[in-house]
């Protein structure tokens, strides 16, 4: 157990290092830089700027300087917004994205899993067809289309819900539904197919032969086995939702991390790209790790082995 944890943590650090290295290399391989603009800066000014941000040093020196800063949780200054640091962006943006993402995750879990179970139990009946049609739509329609449709209907036409405001709880409804639509539909479908498969297993027949009621058969013997694939997908989904979505944040004018991230790429804001990528990667790796630990709890066949 201890050996497993140590090995996993070392591997996580290695993965992060590789991700940081690749992002750094790709970022510098792309033409242009933070000070490239339509109106060329005078050569002397640009040289001054590059020297100030340490951009004239060899790349490997820059990279190791960056790693040094990262280890002390200093992600560096933003190149585009003077006086602001990347830490500021994350500190301001992440809580907003994470709150929206957190609510979305709760919403997804509360709706998709019961929906998937219901569809599986009504396999082949109209309820199943209904849920699966909605879920297929949810998986195929892009989130910005859902968001725009919802805004048009509930804000513009009916006037029930605000468009841009996270001050009141009503303001969360549209972003949460638009943001969670895809994952909700996906998890509902996964839950359904997984439960259907499990309910055809021999041990379900054994459970029935004991004289258990159908509810007990499903809850005690079906669900726990059927949740295993759902948990796999839940890790990356949670990481992605908590760190913010560019599209939804842009549409609903939410000052989260997703917007900063996409903007920083366009502006070659090197430190912001690095900072947010590594932050997201850390999150993803940690979530995957948590999922792996959950596996061993839910499925005794999976062992924590070094």
């Amino acid at each position: 157990m201890a050996r497993f944890l140590i090995k996993r943590i070392l591997l996580m650090i290695l993965s992060l290092f590789v991700i940081a290295f690749l992002t750094f290399s790709l970022m510098h391989a792309v033409p242009g830089g933070p000070f490239t603009a339509e109106r060329q800066l005078p050569a002397r000014v640009e040289a001054e700027m590059r020297a100030r941000y340490n951009l004239d040093a060899p790349l490997y020196v820059q990279f190791f300087d960056y790693i040094k800063g990262f280890l002390t949780f200093d992600l560096g200054p933003s190149f585009k917004y003077p006086g602001k640091t990347v830490n500021d962006f994350i500190e301001n943006g992440f809580p907003v994205s994470a709150k929206l993402g957190g609510i979305t995750i709760l919403f997804i879990l509360a709706v998709s899993i019961p929906l998937g179970i219901w569809a599986a139990l009504k396999n082949g009946k109209w309820q199943d067809g209904f849920v699966m049609t909605i879920a297929t739509l949810g998986v195929t329609i892009p989130s910005f289309v859902i968001a725009t449709l919802l805004m048009y209907l509930f804000s513009h036409k009916l006037g029930w819900l605000p468009v841009f405001s996270l001050d009141k709880w009503q303001g969360y409804i549209l972003p949460v539904v638009s943001l969670g639509g895809y994952s909700l539909a996906f998890i509902a479908r996964l839950m359904r197919s997984s439960l259907l498969e499990v309910m055809g297993q021999d041990y379900i027949r054994t459970a029935r032969s004991k004289g258990l009621s159908e509810v007990k058969v499903i809850v005690r013997h079906g669900l726990r086995n059927a949740l295993i694939p759902v948990i796999t997908i839940l890790g990356p989904t949670i990481a992605a939702l908590l760190t913010g979505s560019f599209v939804i944040e842009k549409i609903f004018a939410i000052p989260g991390m997703g917007v900063y991230f996409v903007d920083s790429v366009g502006q070659r804001d090197y430190t912001a790209i690095m900072g947010i990528t590594v932050f997201y990667a850390t999150f993803l790796i940690v979530m995957t790790f948590i999922v792996d630990i959950f596996y061993t709890i839910i499925d005794p066949r999976i062992r924590m082995e070094a």
Binding site: D202, Y203, T206, A207, S209, K210, G211, H221, N225, P300
Partner: peptide
Amino acid sequence: RSIRGKEIAMIFQDPMSSLNPV
């Protein structure tokens, strides 16, 4: 259900898959 298991019980062919793995 009050007959199953209590009055008439069954053993199945494949012991590998007839028990709940979790």
